[in-house]
C-alpha cells in the first residue's frame, strides 16, 4: 500500500477514535482515575458524586482507547475497591487482573504482568501518593484484628497510651515496631 493510502486510512481510523472517546465507559473511567490522581489528562472529565466503575468497562476503555488505564487499574482496584464493581463474566482479562492484584496485595517483589504490562510498572502505583491524601497506600493500610487480652493488660495499655497522648493502637504498634529494630 502507498504511503498516501495508509495516511488516508489512518485519518479515517482517527475519526473513529474521536467517536470512541465519547463512549461513557471511557469517559467515566477516565473521570474517576483523573479525579483520584492515578492519571493526568489535558481533557476535562467532569465527575459527579459517589461513582462506581464496572471493571469490565475500565478494561474495555484501556484496551480500546487509553492503554494507560490498564497500567494503573490494578492499583486503583486495590486502593479504592469500593468504587469498583465486578461483573458476572469471568473473562481471561478479569482472571489476569485478579492474579496481578493478589500478587500486589501480598507485596510480592515480582509478580504476574497484567495484559502485557510489566508487574514492576504496575506496582509503582500501589504506594504512590495520590491527590486525595485520605487514600492510603498499600503499606499504610490498617488491617483489623481481634486479640483477647486480660483486663489488667488492657488497663496498663490504656494508661500508658494516655500518658503518651496517643491511641491504644498506636502505643501497641510503636512497641512492636521498636522491638523489631
Amino acid at each position: 500500500m502507498k504511503k498516501e493510502e495508509i495516511v488516508a486510512k489512518i485519518k479515517k481510523a482517527a475519526q473513529k477514535d474521536k467517536k470512541r472517546r465519547r463512549d461513557p465507559r471511557y469517559r467515566n473511567t477516565m473521570a474517576f482515575l483523573v479525579n483520584k490522581g492515578f492519571l493526568r489528562a489535558n481533557q476535562k472529565f467532569p465527575m459527579g458524586g459517589n461513582v462506581r466503575i464496572a471493571i469490565e468497562d475500565a478494561i474495555w476503555a484501556g484496551q480500546n482507547i487509553e492503554p494507560r488505564i490498564l497500567e494503573v487499574l490494578p492499583a486503583a482496584v486495590i486502593r479504592l475497591n469500593k468504587h469498583f464493581v465486578l461483573g458476572k463474566n469471568r473473562t481471561k482479562e478479569m482472571i489476569n487482573l485478579e492474579e496481578t492484584i493478589n500478587d500486589l496485595r501480598e507485596l510480592k517483589e515480582q509478580g504476574r504482568d497484567f495484559l502485557g504490562i510489566r508487574y514492576d510498572k504496575i506496582k509503582i502505583w500501589v504506594n504512590f501518593k495520590l491527590k486525595d491524601g485520605r487514600i492510603k497506600t498499600q503499606v499504610d493500610k490498617k488491617i483489623a484484628r481481634n486479640y483477647r487480652l486480660r483486663p489488667k493488660t488492657i488497663e496498663i495499655l490504656k494508661n500508658k497510651a494516655l500518658a503518651s497522648k496517643i491511641s491504644d493502637t498506636e502505643y501497641l504498634e510503636n512497641l512492636i515496631l521498636k522491638s523489631n529494630l
Binding site: V34, F38, R40, A41, N42, E66, R68, V72, W125, F128
Partner: peptide
C-alpha cells in the same frame, strides 16, 4: 497539548 488528546500516569 492544545490539539492532541493526552493522558499520562505520574511517571
Amino acid at each position: 497539548s492544545s490539539f492532541l488528546t493526552l493522558a499520562q500516569t505520574g511517571d
